[in-house]
Structure formats: C-alpha cells, structure tokens
Design a protein around this nucleic acid. Structure first.
Lengths: 153, 153
DNA sequence: CCCCGTAAGTTGGAAAATCAAACCCTCTCT
DNA sequence: AGAGAGGGTTTGATTTTCCAACTTACGGGG
C-alpha cells in the first residue's frame, strides 16, 4: 500500500479503512465496549477483531481500559480523536439510509438534542452553508497532485 | 461478511469500504476519471482497480462512459449518488488533517465558494447546530439492536 | 509495412489476509 | 468439582492481494 500522493484521506483510511474498523467504532460509540459484545454485534472473527483493536488502540483512536482486575476484564473506549470520527459514521449512515433503503426502512434513527431526528449536513464552518461539490476548489499544497479536473474532494 | 445487525453504515461500507474504493471516489471527484490515471494516482494494482470499478459502477456510484469509440476509451464519472459520498471524504480528510499531521502540513486545501478555506462541520439540518456526541440518542428501529450504552453513532 | 506508444484492461502464480472452529487461561458461582 | 463467562490465541483451509507480464485495439512515424 504505497500512496503515490500525500493525502489525509488515504492516511485516515490506512488507520480505519480496514474491514470492521469503522464498525468497531460504531459499537464503542454506542456504548458496546467489551470484546465479546463487539464479536457478536459486528460478526467479525475473533482473531481479526483482536488485531483491529490493537491497531485502533495504538493509533490513539481507542483506549483499552480494565473494568475489573481479578479476573482481568477490559473494555475499549473511544478517545477524543476516536469520537471525532463519529461524523464520518453519521455521514455514511445517512448516505446508506438515502441510497440503500426505501423511505421508512431505516434500521436506526438518531435523535438530536434539539428534539428532531438527526439529518446530518456537512457545512462550511466559515459561512455556514451546506457544502456542494460545485462550490469546492482544490488547492494542492505539495507536488504529486497533478489534478486535471477543476473540482475537489 | 454477515451483518448480525441491520445497519446502513455496514451496508454502505459493503459497497465503498473495500481497499481503494474511497480513493477512487476521491480521484473521480477531482476529475481524474481515466483508468490509467486512477492506477497512477491511487497506486493500486490494475486488476484490483478493475474489480473495484466494476463494483462501484454496478452499485450506481460511478458511471462508465466512453469518451472515444475507435479506439474504445472510457472514463468513470461519479453519479449523483457518488457525489453524495463526497461529504464522507471531506470529513475523513479533515480528521486526517487534524490528527495525523502537524498544523500547516496539509497536503491539500479545499476552498469554499465563500472564499474561505473549507473546514467541514457536520450539523443537524433541523436546528443547524454542530452535532456533538453527547447530543445524540439512538433509537433502534428493528430488533438486533440491544444497545447497552445510551449514546449514539 | 513495421515498429513504437498509449489506453484499458486480463492472466498467472506467489504472498498475505481472512475465516471458522477449537483451544486456553483465569476467575466466579453453585 | 463442574459449568460458565470473558478475553483472547492457535491452527489450517479459503480468499484476496499483489506484481509483472501479456493482450487487444488503435494512431503515428519512418
């Protein structure tokens, strides 16, 4: 896995882009923090899950905390950096709800503290507007970015 | 890959969660739509890339369009559904910029049409506020969601 | 006509990752 | 003592990835 381009998307995916990693994050954000819960709720092989958890811990996305000595038992909590990945999950979930299911077939609804159902929208923090593809211009900061198109990711 | 839970995050990842898929989307959103450009810019093996492209096309995320008959040449364009995944990329990129790099080491800066550098924020479309973890409550709509924790993804 | 180059893949075989099931260890409970 | 629960590790078969080479189809130059 060599990146021909310096890219934070690629770098982020190198940490959380492997199979099951984002589902682990989903579970811990929901409060399911124990190994066996993760195995059951995600449906991942135990060995793979163990590998992912090590990776996420060493990446500073999760924290392994003992909730019992004797017998030693652990849970995995999201760090602040891990919690900051939640917007990625919300955006993905909204996309799946919109494109992979019929109306009113959502497996889960998130309620915002304002009392409404959460419909996440990505906005520009400067002007507050929802961001659309046509409103973006890409400015590469390093070589290796020979963009032929004008728009941006 | 069996999902013990009905989940739009899992379903979305089943389509775009494989290695390179989101990088393909990054490239086509940037306007790099030809096979050889994708190979070079992503650094993926050609055969894997061909497989991914087939998947993304059949999922309705990309569209394969001939830009030349004789010799036949194709490009891959994002469909509207594909473009709607851009917010996922923006959010991931912002996370990577924040957590994987020092200040002012960003490989790429996105400019919004308002003239400012884009700092994407996920907001609640109902109230407009930035969404924080503590402001969410999860409401499972189907069985298989035995959430032990109160918060949400 | 022959050879070179480009674009868009396909093919073959070695290397790495995934999978499922079984196993292990440490406690607790009855 | 026996039966679980929790948190993993081990083993061996199955899948994927990876890389390099090959293919097909055309356009251009000498």
């Amino acid at each position: 896995m060599k990146h021909p381009r310096p890219c934070s998307i690629a770098d982020a995916l190198a940490l959380v882009g492997e199979k099951y990693s984002l589902l682990v994050l989903r579970e811990v954000c929901l409060g399911n923090e124990r190994f066996d819960q993760l195995v059951r709720n995600i449906g991942a092989p135990r060995d793979i899950l163990a590998t992912r958890l090590r990776r996420l811990v060493e990446a500073g996305i999760l924290e392994k905390v003992a909730y019992s000595e004797r017998p030693q038992r652990f849970r995995y909590r999201p760090t602040p950096a891990g919690l900051e990945l939640e917007p990625v999950l919300m955006t993905l979930m909204a996309w799946g709800d919109r494109h992979l299911r019929g109306e009113e077939d959502r497996p889960m609804i998130l309620e915002h503290s304002c009392g409404q159902e959460l419909v996440p929208v990505v906005t520009c923090s400067a002007c507050g507007d929802a961001v659309r593809h046509e409103d973006l211009t890409a400015h590469p900061q390093s070589p290796g970015w020979t963009t032929t198109g004008p728009s941006a990711a």
